[in-house]
Design a protein around this nucleic acid. Sequence first.
DNA 1: CTATTTGATAATTCATACTTATTAAATAAT
DNA 2: ATTATTTAATAAGTATGAATTATCAAATAG
Lengths: 295, 295
Amino acid sequence: MNYQIELRHFIYFLAVAEELHYRKAAEKLFISQPGLSTQIKQMEEILETQLFVRDKKKVRLTPAGEFLKKEVEFILNHLDQTKKQLKLIGHGHMGEVRIGFLGSAMQNVVPELLVGLKEKYPLVHTTLEELSNRAQINAILSDRLDLGFVRMSRVPKGLEVKPVFEDTFSLVLPQDHPIDAKNFKSIDQLVNEDFILFSQDYSPEYYDTVLSICEDSGFVPKVSHKSVHAQTIFKLVENKLGIAIVPTTLQHGFQMEVKFIEMKQIRQRAVLSMVWKADNRNPALKNCMDLLLKL
Amino acid sequence: MNYQIELRHFIYFLAVAEELHYRKAAEKLFISQPGLSTQIKQMEEILETQLFVRDKKKVRLTPAGEFLKKEVEFILNHLDQTKKQLKLIGHGHMGEVRIGFLGSAMQNVVPELLVGLKEKYPLVHTTLEELSNRAQINAILSDRLDLGFVRMSRVPKGLEVKPVFEDTFSLVLPQDHPIDAKNFKSIDQLVNEDFILFSQDYSPEYYDTVLSICEDSGFVPKVSHKSVHAQTIFKLVENKLGIAIVPTTLQHGFQMEVKFIEMKQIRQRAVLSMVWKADNRNPALKNCMDLLLKL
DNA sequence: CTATTTGATAATTCATACTTATTAAATAAT
DNA sequence: ATTATTTAATAAGTATGAATTATCAAATAG
């Protein structure tokens, strides 16, 4: 008496509404005719509405049945769509990945990732935000970001980190500086220069690495300026207010009166890593990371 | 293994998605917690998509689950609406009644019906078509019409008929005709006049009735004109091309230089009947007819 | 008038949704 | 640390009801 309508009823109903013939409909559904009869009857009882007129030889829809047919078609169709989309989302072929990045990641890793994603998973949407190392970590911890691109090797508990790009360091000098690629031997040739670096707060590991480069040559650099923008740093060098040490690939995309001298011989590398929350269950994130590691 | 998703799953899913707590959700659903757990698990297997992340103390939705929640809310809501509408349709409180009528029914019965319907069943829509007796019968037989208003007492098998309005007949005379309500006694005073009648084809029973009125007075009328429009008949009378006998209420709504003399004393009546198909299952039709008989 | 076809009904079987009892893991309290 | 409490999952058993087979009554066709 107190049954509930189920999708089964709808599927049965639609078969009868289409065939207008119980036996044929039952065959189509691979069930027996009596079973179909009782289910339709039950359905009419639940809905408190007659859906078919059966005068022992003809079956036809009542106006209410006619109406329900349209609605059931709509609902079952909508459900089909939903199932398909759900599978796409569940398998990471559809959805959203929220990405944070340091400005310096925009030179290679991030653009390549975006192109690859668009090609392989066109239904995966990305949102991008340029943030400092610390801001990315915070955003990931509080679930405002799925993936970050940072320059750090140690991350708080609950996060995971993996290097994705290793870069050499390059000296940045004014165009007319006496030192060039040919006569450059070691960093200690620049011991008396003013150094312009990314600020400690923006990227602590970079800062420490640059200090260690100088330390390996036996001096402590005199740091005259700190900035968070490569643009600013290059501008300062151009105006002869100092020299800089930056990841090599950072030189692309700028039009400045400065020269870059790659320092392959030193052991330090500028490592760009991706960071994510260990328990992040966004399936699109997994696909995104897998794709990145294949690039 | 080969199960099907059912509405039950959706209702369970929604409870868990809202509570994010299996025990509480189970309580709300009046089922046991293990039952709920297995049903949700089964649902995930059917959909081949993880919907919840349970880390033994916290339950939360995956992106796919988040998506499904929205869709399930939509579907269940849509279903609720459908059920309500279905009941309205099934009980004749919503839907369409296709009505045919003779022009003469527009003077009283039909307008009253429409006003009554609009008041009592505002969601029942009507379509109106002015048709001859025969055309209405044919339309009802072939399911193009639900209800007809005709002047006939015999209808083909499969149809039913019921009188809804009885009208006296009235003479229609030119304004300056010597006979008026005071000196009129019997129809045989007009034995020498030309008669203008509705055509036999348009309304056979009317035609026969008028002939029987004259026959009762012992003469056969000279019929000079036949028409299907009251407007035309009145115009002809106005121009002194003859006199007419029509149902009394037909006089309303015309502005003509004619006078009407009601013949209460004769036994014949102009009967307007409704006709419908015996096996018509339009629930709105039943309500429509019930309403009409109460007017 | 018989044969065939229709959907409905009755009795029975079987699948499975649900129950109770229990467990393992996580958190909170002492 | 240890215990108590709370969580969802698992296991075993039950009972509901969807399905089956067998049959029927009514309608139609030959």
